[in-house]
Amino acid sequence: MKYWRTPLDIDKIKIPRGELHIIKERCKGCGFCVEYCPKGVLKLSDEFNSKGYHPPVAIKPDECVNCDLCEMLCPDFAIYCLRAEDVEKEVTS
């Protein structure tokens, strides 16, 4: 990401990291999480769950910023993010 200027407190800001949890069996394969993940972390997998839907899979798990959008948009309570406290990385400009 490119800023027009470097924020003065850049040293203090940390990009949050998320830990993604997918409850495959609840998924109905709507694709909301895949479509709206701002970081493009997810895609629908080829795998089937027992109801015959394709649950999502993280293709870029390390890029999850714990924004919770997938969790909020999921109509089936099948995906959620937790803040990955230990794996926060520092911003580099």
């Binding site: 409850i23 109905k28 709507c30 969790e71 909020m72 999921c74 109509p75 089936d76």
Partner: peptide
Amino acid sequence: HPMEKLLRMDRIPHIWCPTCGIGTTVT
């Protein structure tokens, strides 16, 4: 799931169709 304390998990999965928006509204 973080919403579990507000949901009756013994009744999930719910009856709504795939890509229905109601579940999102409940969240």
